Simulated assay, not measured.
Amino acid sequence: MAEQMSRRAAIGIGAAAAALVATPGGAAAAPGTSGGAAPSGHDAAQALIRRTYRQQKARAGGAWRSHVAMVDDSGALRTVVADDVDRVTHGYSVQKLAVAVAVMDKIDRGELALGQRLDLTGDIILGGSGIYFLHTVWGDEITVANFLTAMLLVSDNTSVRMCGRVVPALEINEILAAKGFTHTRVEPVANPNRFFLGVTTPRETHDLLWRLATKTLLSTRSCDFLLGILRWVNGYHDGIRRDMSSAERSRVATKYGADYDESGAARHEAGIMFDATGAPTLTYAFFADSLGDLDNYGGTHPAVRAHATLGRVMFDAVGPVTNRAARARHSVNRFRPVNGG
């Protein structure tokens, strides 16, 4: 959606950046600037993101592995935050992005279609996040497009099993390997059509997101399909997109993941921010585990609060940036409520 940055947001990022430069003991000068020289607006925005990340990570606790990258004034993508970016970690529901990519790859090769129908039977239903288990009765025939939308928009767990019916676990891993991902894998089980969601790294998640946004990961049509779901305003709002208007939210494609293991809770979120022209401008991949508040999956979890704070700061940073060099852009329709009829 094309939307100009609000005057309030523009003033906010300028004031915050200026305060960062002026504050003694603040973040170190951005790369490429001398210690005594005020950084440019872009460098100050990057410094503010790094400072906010350090503060929020310390406040939330746990072990964080993160990657943030942002285009500079020339349109080149520059790393802003690189924190243990090659650590292999359980991606939990963020991995549904990789699963969806594998399904779309098979569609691009003509071996599957978005309109292909599969039966949704009671024996495949999984609880947890999602919508299908809420039906209480089953027997529908649903399209591939249907369960991919449910998997990415509301993180439906049954959809993962539906994906496994059309792209088995070993084939998913083969597709990901062929696309250059070394660590991003699902975990096969005895049933070849089922799997655990597996592992990834912040760097590979960033690469997947950037290639999706620049439409080099899949066909243009397939990238647009996935981005349209991830950017839609009915998706996840507790984290990065919490403190944004509906119009601002539609400029952010995001995927959340949460679970726990013996080390504690995990709260992850990864996505892409677009400028007002629809050009990809910033990617983020935040993986945090060994956290407390194990059973809190809401917006008050400390790591989710951290995501919300980071989301506002990052969005305000990209507000004044226009990626004029972008070769690929993406837009979504403006949200308009419909009162039946």
Rank of each mutant, 00 (worst) to 15 (best):
M1V: 07
A2E: 07
E3L: 08
Q4D: 04
Q4M: 10
S6H: 06
A9W: 11
A10H: 03
A17I: 08
A17P: 01
A17V: 15
V21N: 12
A22M: 14
G25R: 10
A29T: 13
S40H: 01
H42D: 15
H42G: 15
D43C: 04
A44G: 14
A44E: 09
A44K: 09
A45M: 03
A45G: 11
T52H: 05
R54K: 10
Q55K: 11
W64Y: 07
V71L: 02
D73S: 09
L77H: 04
L77N: 10
L77G: 09
T79A: 11
V80M: 04
V80L: 05
D83N: 15
D86K: 09
R87V: 12
S93D: 02
Q95C: 05
Q95G: 09
A102R: 03
A102S: 13
D105I: 00
L114E: 08
R117Q: 14
T121D: 14
G122N: 13
D123C: 12
I124G: 12
I124R: 13
I125M: 08
Y132L: 14
F133Y: 15
T136E: 13
W138P: 02
I142K: 14
T143I: 07
T143M: 03
T143L: 09
A150T: 00
L152H: 07
R161Q: 09
C163A: 15
I172W: 07
N173I: 07
A177L: 14
A178R: 15
H183D: 15
T184Q: 10
T184N: 11
P188N: 08
V189W: 08
V189Q: 11
N191A: 15
P192T: 12
N193E: 13
G198K: 09
V199S: 06
R203T: 14
L209R: 08
L209Y: 08
L217H: 12
C223D: 05
F225M: 07
L227H: 09
G228D: 06
G235L: 05
Y236D: 14
R241S: 04
M244I: 06
S246I: 14
A247Q: 11
R251L: 11
V252Y: 04
T254Q: 01
Y256N: 08
A258Q: 10
D259H: 11
G264W: 06
G264R: 04
A265V: 04
A265W: 05
A270K: 00
G271E: 02
G271T: 01
I272C: 03
I272R: 03
F274M: 03
L282R: 10
L282Q: 02
T283Q: 07
Y284Q: 03
S290F: 00
S290H: 08
G292D: 11
G292A: 12
L294F: 11
T300R: 02
A303Y: 02
V304G: 03
R305D: 01
A306L: 02
A308M: 00
A308F: 00
T309W: 00
R312W: 01
F315N: 02
D316R: 01
T322C: 01
R324S: 12
A328N: 08
S331T: 14
N333Y: 00
F335M: 12
V338D: 11
N339F: 15
